[in-house]
Design a protein around this nucleic acid. Structure first.
Lengths: 196, 196
DNA sequence: AAAATACGCTAACTAACATTAGCAGTATAA
DNA sequence: TTATACTGCTAATGTTAGTTAGCGTATTTT
């Protein structure tokens, strides 16, 4: 078939990874086959294994890339000296940006992580739990400081995260799509719903 | 193995359907196998086919049960003579109730519908599109009547629906769980975010 | 230029999958 | 009680899956 084109200093493995995220997003991890992936990449299925260890390696690379990215941003936000509502707004904007820019990876991480194998599965779940707890702490801080309504912080986190991960439907319905406008609308609804 | 117990006037087919929803929810449609389902039901895999036509029939029965249920409730709400915010609150409560009471079916309908086969797939997508449009119309009506902030109604629908479908995480984190409290928190955040 | 490594190919393997055929026992209705 | 439909079983079929082995060619390194 010919070899994988390796342009703009991304390795062959990175190309496979990127294409696999697109495929996993479209078909779902289980329904996506290595033969399909190979065809997209422009190579025979067996050739993929010169670059990757297994199908499941692709999934866990995708998931942990996203998780690490999220965790790093949370570090930044926590370090900041500003009120809780602003921190939350910043988080929401970051998450929406991530959804818009790295759509496939984030989507796969959100919806397909359950097919991770041990020990990655447990590790991933732990990271996710921690992220949510840190998010909830910021909300609780806001409630204590009377910036935010008295609500259950866990539920609020859940509402925010799932509202954002739902952006995929948006993607499908409007092809030309204004990330900024989306952000402003969601901030209005979500931050508006929290503000006292 | 023995035959399927058919207690409290539910047919064998209904038992299989119920169990399949649980299995599809836990493993995902593609990853769930008929052999697993058979074992759960207490029978050999081949025996299932005395009651159902195929694996995919199970999925489309689940999805269309939910879709029909949703559509019927939307009829009710639209017929009502009340302000938009109240209608929206009613819809949100209904959707949360559905998520809490028929958890598996709703979850599967939400996350696994893409594995429907034609012509069911197109049909389902159409029904879903219509439901969302009707929901958005109620929000737009509220905006016109100045009950609701000036936001993009489509985005608002998306935020609400995905926030609710995210209740699954809740399910996992707290086993003993108060549906009413969840409802009040979500109404506060979501309706609060819309109200002018 | 020679040696070593990277890469892609064909062919094959094993496992799991949904589903069907055909047969036997069991409940139901005549 | 006999006939009919129902329900379950074993065995088998055809597909598709992920992955490996082994070989040849291209590229990179020495």
């Amino acid at each position: 078939m010919g070899r994988i084109k390796t342009e703009n200093n991304s390795s062959r493995k990175e190309i496979i990874l990127k294409k696999s995220a697109e495929l996993f997003k479209e078909k779902g991890y289980k329904a996506a086959s290595m033969r399909e992936l190979a065809e997209i990449v422009g190579v025979e299925a067996a050739s993929l294994y010169n670059h990757i260890r297994s199908k499941s390696e692709l999934l866990h690379l995708i998931c942990f890339n996203v998780a690490t990215h999220y965790s790093a941003f949370m570090d930044e936000v926590e370090a900041e000296k500003s009120n809780s509502l602003y921190k939350i707004e910043k988080l929401i904007r970051f998450l929406i940006d991530g959804m818009v820019e790295n759509f496939e990876e984030v989507y796969v991480c959100d919806r397909e992580w359950k097919y991770l194998t041990e020990p990655y599965l447990s590790n991933f779940q732990a990271q996710r739990r921690i992220f949510r707890k840190r998010f909830a702490s910021i909300i609780e801080e806001g409630i204590r400081k009377k910036e935010i309504k008295k609500i259950d912080a866990t539920t609020a986190v859940l509402v925010i995260l799932h509202a954002i991960s739902g952006i995929e439907s948006w993607h499908r319905s409007k092809q030309k799509f204004d990330g900024k406008e989306l952000q402003e609308n969601m901030i209005t609804i979500l931050v508006g719903g929290l503000k006292k």
